[in-house]
Amino acid sequence: MFISESCWYLFHPFICASTMCAKTEQDSQAIARVIAGDFDAFEELVERYQGRIFRHLRKMVGDNQVAEDLLQETFLAAYRGLKGFAGASSFSTWLFRIATNAALMFLRKNRPESIEYDDEIRTRTDLPFFPAPIEFCSTPLDILLSDEGRRKIEEAIDDLPVLYRSVMVLRDVEGFSLEEVSKIMDSSVAAVKSRLHRARNSVRETLAAYYMEKDLASNRRITKSK
């Protein structure tokens, strides 16, 4: 793998190598204490991961109450299975896999259509090439990340089919590597890459269309007021 100048991921808060090593070490120590009977150490692990797991579950099932039930189920299963955790993957990958399986089981049982029609995603990249609108890229970051901007980001991701959404959240929000995402989702790396490519393009298109429309509306207001 060649590290090109495009690899801004190296600075992602969860990807920074030294941070990752420190977290893995902290997790290993806490796991050893839990197995030795120290429940406080398990609460440390819960404290460390509950926000991220809840976010992942919320994005997968799209319902806060269901996500809360699955969050409880995930940590209970993790506690019960901790002794069998062999350390073949990191604790976070293992934990996210438990959460993902719980969410997929819920969806298969309650909304099977959301999994069955997973491949129904089309993006502009399926069409002949024409340039992206400029308004999205020229919008300052503080506006893109304002309350309104964040709502649009959430909506754009929520519009994706569940497996695309999950892959994008695991890679781009949680910062897992492609290999880790493939383990968590029980998919091949090639499938993860393909879904990620389409999910990112779809989100980009939704956001670009929104900022283009917003810019047009603003220009119309300016023209009217003259």
């Binding site: 801004w8 809840f54 340039p131 609108p133 400029i134 890229c137 781009d172 990112r200 989100v203 980009r204």
Partner: peptide
């Protein structure tokens, strides 16, 4: 330049998604 814009918009989308969803 059209491809440069295409790339920049994709990178911006990924970057804002990485920061835009609170835990």
């Amino acid at each position: 330049s059209p491809c440069a814009l295409e790339y920049k918009s994709l990178r911006t989308a990924v970057e804002v998604c990485s920061q835009g969803i609170s835990d």
